[in-house]
Nucleic acid binder design. Structure first.
Ligand SMILES: [Mn+2]
Ligand SMILES: [Mn+2]
Ligand SMILES: [Mn+2]
Ligand SMILES: [Mn+2]
Lengths: 219, 219
DNA sequence: TAATTTTTTTAGATTAATCTAAATTTTATA
DNA sequence: TATAAAATTTAGATTAATCTAAAAAAATTA
């Protein structure tokens, strides 16, 4: 048995390992989990004991194959529930994360596979993040940060780096929800801000911060 | 905040109080929760401290208005999730209870109200049990135990007293799922068993035990 | 390389939820 | 009503998960 707390730690380690090649550090895990380094050390011992991570004192941790499997299933559940909440219950994409954090811990293989079928085996969640399939395989999508586009480039909004409700709501206001077609009109070297034409022919100005947090598939 | 364990105790007390007029006893709660009397006493102190129950040592307990509200919301959530699992994910009625036991603890008012709307504000769950509305009001249904029917009586299966998968599967086999129309043909005084004509014109013999656990609305 | 800073671990508590065994109170019975 | 039986509570532990403060190790910098 893997407790909810243990599952959450495994997911945190997975997310850190996605970005960093090296082993996940105690402090990085503490930051991700919003807890103290001491609590993390306690938990790492327990996870190592259960062979869910490889842990050497002072050296950071890596998921074992089994730890990776548990984390992947958890992310699959989280993202499938987010699809349900948005597509079927009518929640906005900025409202579903905390609910999915709870729903992802509901146990039951049949549940998640039936939910997946009900939803039509979606490949991406409401934030554009890929949903691993029942065998843990990921769909990769060629996408680029808005910050890397050049004037004249056109594309479709496919995802976000920042998942905060504030950013998601801002995107809605700007007409930059998932699937929106955009064209980069101009980039200002002074502050790396850009002018963008959105779907409705509307022109908006976006800061570098937005450029670093918005993914686009160039067409 | 009310923990999951506390919620489960409140629901257990609610269910005992439904059947017995007097205060729920420590032992009755222990039996319902499948735990020890000592654990129950510990928990009763905590629930009393939070004003969720009225508790006098050695005298049993009763829910306060607030405790009753929490228990009612929990039952509402449990039964709405059961409807979702059966009507939309295709689970059988004998497969959903344990999943609903987990889903009922997911927090979020918006979630349950949106789920209720998605499901079309159902009044009864897959076992025929009433679902309280958002204000905690219950729909009562005039139904009688099969054991009380007389030869010649016709009716429709509306609910079960025993919720065990074994009983529910047996009913499916006999053609006695929820909504099935039946006619009581004959009752044998010797063992109180009955002969019943089911929907497809099929005749089946049912024991007294079945008669004591199957509800019918007489037409 | 020695001193300083940062990171990580350990020590020692706390809280919720549970248990077994023993003590106490209530209820039933002779 | 005394005694026995049943129900309930208390005492004392345990486990998971968390915390703060202190100690120890590793990394950085002078
Ligand atoms: Mn999320
Ligand atoms: Mn997401
Ligand atoms: Mn149920
Ligand atoms: Mn039910």
């Amino acid at each position: 048995m893997v407790s909810q707390a243990e599952e959450n730690y495994l997911k945190a380690i997975f997310k850190i390992s996605e970005k960093e090649v090296k082993a996940a550090s105690t402090n990085a895990i503490a930051a991700e989990m919003q807890t103290t380094a001491a609590s993390v050390t306690d938990m790492l011992k327990r996870l190592a004991e259960k062979n869910l991570i490889d842990y050497e004192k002072y050296r950071g941790v890596q998921l074992t194959a089994e730890g990776n499997r548990v984390a992947t299933v958890l992310i699959r559940k989280h993202r499938l529930w987010e699809v349900f909440l948005v597509d079927h219950l009518g929640f906005a994409w900025d409202e579903v994360h905390d609910l999915a954090e709870q729903l992802e811990h509901v146990q039951g293989n049949a549940l998640i596979e039936r939910l997946d079928r009900f939803l039509g085996h979606p490949k991406f969640d409401p934030h554009g993040d890929p949903i691993p399939d029942a065998e843990g395989r990921w769909t990769l999508r060629p996408q680029a940060l808005l910050a890397t586009l050049k004037p004249g480039d056109r594309g479709v909004v496919t995802g976000v780096e920042d998942h905060s409700p504030a950013f998601l709501q801002y995107l809605d206001q700007m007409g930059l929800s998932l699937g929106a077609e955009i064209e980069l009109l101009e980039r200002f070297p002074y502050d790396q801000s850009v002018r963008v034409r959105t779907q409705a022919g509307r022109e908006v100005s976006l800061s570098e911060k937005v450029g670093q947090n918005l993914y686009v598939k160039i067409s």
